[in-house]
Design a protein around this nucleic acid. Structure first.
Lengths: 216, 216
DNA sequence: CTTAAGGTAAGTCAAGCGCCTGACTTAAAG
DNA sequence: CTTTAAGTCAGGCGCTTGACTTACCTTAAG
């Protein structure tokens, strides 16, 4: 049996072409600088409404691209979580937060666009919420955040929230920065995604453990 | 004498209207989501080519908005630099890097848009370079970076570059995040821009002083 | 084999865009 | 006072965009 779907395979192939083309264009030029037509053409679709037909609005397309990667990233995070010992420290939780994205990019291999895509979507006022929803929908991610917070009981809640936001920004934007450097042929401070993740984790841990200047 | 310029005042008033309207729209919706026409209309100009007439391309308009604020920010940084003692430490240099933007926003008072504007421009692939040029053109900024690097002789050069990039992202995006929270009426972790700057400096210093995991 | 369904191609449409042109208004120069 | 130059306004032109319509073609079901 060839599956019951010769047709369905072609459809999902077309969807995949559109997702890939859109991810690349959005990453390189910004979401709002690319029209649905351009995405359709870049995907090799003569029909200029292919995006609308398969995905609906541009926001729906963005969500679909995010979900396509989220599965793999979740798997990586689940594996890292499973590898944590009995008395996890800040480093353990930080790794679970930081490493999934860089490791995912490394596994994709070759040139990638997803990190820059995420940076673009996260910064866009109209799409920011989509990214937040898709991210926070992950129970394993919340588990990491909770675990980390339990490791930092001395940190005032507001400062914890503040530094969590900082870490979130770095986790999104630093891989994007490295990805861009690779795309443009510029030198990078780390030779592979794994080392880049280590450098990022080092810095974020330092950020979380930094002494707090008392308010006046 | 009313100056020799009744006319010139009106012109610069129009330019100011356009700059203010554009800064606000770009900050709220993203640069690429706003047309020059919309900017002209928001500035109360019946002519739909007002932006083109006064500023040229959209990139030129963005540059003009940046420069309008850069003057004040430079003044603040110069004052902070002048207040540094004989043996400056990491905290001194970090303050000179971190505080100018939040203090500038505080002085503007009321609702502001410049931080979000900077975040949008910095993230836009087509405009990123403009922001870098305008920023690095400041000798006082370079002085801060050099001073800081002299305080961190033990940090490998690549790690120093890496963490400098992280600090840059936080300095741009964290004020933007606070500004957005204020605009949307959400609670903020700090009650004023000065305290926000302190929290940011604390974290960035921790980031710079964090131990470096040795490469394998 | 026939038929219905669904995906793709191709063309059309109104709306909005940047850009250009020309007319009007007004401050400053001769 | 006349002339000049500059800022503003009003509108048209060509192009792109998202949305819609139609025709064709392949597949899976009857």
């Amino acid at each position: 049996m060839t599956g019951r779907t010769v047709r369905a395979e072609q459809v999902s192939a077309t969807r995949e072409l559109i997702l890939t083309a859109a991810e690349r264009l959005f990453a390189e030029r910004g979401v709002n600088a690319v029209s649905n037509r351009q995405v359709s053409e870049a995907a090799g679709q003569g029909n200029n409404t292919a995006v609308g037909y398969h995905f609906g609005t541009k926001a729906d397309l963005v969500r679909a691209i995010v979900r396509k990667h989220t599965v793999r990233i979740e798997e990586i995070r689940a594996r890292l979580l499973a590898g944590i010992g009995d008395s996890p420290g800040v480093r353990d939780w930080a790794d679970c937060l930081v490493r999934p994205m860089p490791e995912h990019l490394g596994r994709l291999g070759g040139p990638t666009w997803f990190a820059r895509f995420c940076a673009q979507v996260t910064t866009d006022p109209a799409l920011h919420q989509i990214m937040m929803e898709e991210s926070l929908a992950s129970p394993s991610l919340r588990q990491c955040i909770d675990g980390l917070n339990r490791c930092l009981p001395d940190l005032p809640p507001e400062v914890r929230a503040e530094r969590g936001e900082m870490a979130r920004h770095l986790i999104v934007h630093m891989p994007a920065e490295r990805e861009r450097a690779l795309a443009e042929g510029r030198p990078t401070s780390r030779s592979n995604w794994d080392d880049a993740a280590t450098g990022l984790a080092d810095a974020i841990i330092g950020l979380w453990l930094a002494p707090v200047t008392p308010g006046r």
